[in-house]
């Protein structure tokens, strides 16, 4: 007896990188609707943070020299970056879930190029971050935020959010591949949380006292937050306020994505 399957030639074609990456990105985006409980916190948390901080710390704009007269303008970019970071780290969470259930082993058995296992989730994180940023901006506008430099200024917020999402993805994937269980989730969140808050997240550098000022000055995330806030502060947009943030994003993203690629290679070797 002849079977069609036995007669069929083995498929030796290599899946194009772009097709594999797009497929993985689509899967991640579809999961937003299939598992909203995993994505909703990354939207609700930055919205809540922006509103709550703006209300609680409303009075700090009265400090002489404060760079805006609206507290929501100060805290909205911070909330957005938190959301973008968690959009990236969330990719790490879902990868851990796939590793634990064994689904990731099946992905690795496909002929997809290894690099697509990084770029696919990265693309998904960038889309998620753009979504979060848009939602936070809309809610922020309702609560009184006003961009001070038009669409160009807002664009810097999107750039910073994309950068944070990219570095968050690299960090999340790298730790997921190393630990392969939920221990990694705690490390992802804690390190990101610390790095974001040990900056001028709450008040400008000139208002701080003591150890935090020193730490914030050397923390590269301070430059990223400065970039994100450009379109919401009264100060003019200058190259001096831009380049530090761009370099920080590129350098840290390169480091974390390299970490993710190497961790994936190590996972494949084991």
């Amino acid at each position: 007896m002849r079977t069609d399957q036995a007669a069929r030639p083995i498929n030796t074609r290599r899946t194009p990188h772009s097709a594999a990456a797009v497929g993985l990105a689509k899967r991640s985006i579809v999961n937003i609707t299939r598992l909203p409980s995993a994505f909703l916190p990354s939207v609700l948390m930055p919205v809540f943070q922006s509103i709550a901080f703006a209300g609680t710390f409303f009075a700090i704009i009265q400090i002489p020299g404060f760079p805006t007269d609206r507290s929501i303008n100060w805290f909205l970019p911070l909330g957005t970056l938190m959301g973008a970071g968690f959009a990236g780290i969330g990719i790490g969470f879902s990868t851990i879930r796939d590793l634990e259930t064994g689904f990731y082993d099946r992905i690795r058995l496909t002929p997809a190029p290894r690099s697509a296992l990084i770029t696919g989730p990265l693309a998904a994180a960038l889309i998620r971050a753009a979504l979060v940023t848009t939602i936070v901006i809309i809610v922020g506008l309702i609560f009184g935020a006003r961009p001070t430099h038009g669409p160009t200024g807002v664009l810097f917020l999107y750039v910073a959010a994309a950068g944070i999402a990219a570095l968050g993805t690299g960090w999340g994937l790298g730790l997921a591949f190393r630990f392969r269980d939920m221990r990694a989730a705690a490390i992802m969140q804690l390190t990101f949380f610390l790095l974001i808050f040990l900056t001028d997240a709450q008040t400008p550098l000139f208002i701080m006292d003591g150890w935090l000022e020193l730490v914030a000055r050397i923390n590269p995330f301070t430059n990223v937050i400065r970039l994100a806030r450009l379109g919401f502060l009264d100060a003019p947009i200058t190259w001096n306020n831009i380049w530090g943030g761009l370099i920080a994003i590129v350098a840290i993203s390169a480091l974390t994505l390299t970490f993710a690629r190497r961790s994936l290679a190590r996972l494949s070797d084991s």
């Binding site: 710390f57 009075a59 700090i60 009265q62 400090i63 709450q202 208002i207 701080m208 006292d209 003591g210």
Partner: peptide, 20 residues
């Protein structure tokens, strides 16, 4: 403790604001 330390360094100048 982390938030208390963070707040102390961030908001020390805010204690002079009206209403504090």
């Amino acid at each position: 403790l982390f938030f208390a330390a963070l707040g102390t360094s961030s908001f020390s100048r805010a204690t002079g604001l009206p209403g504090f």
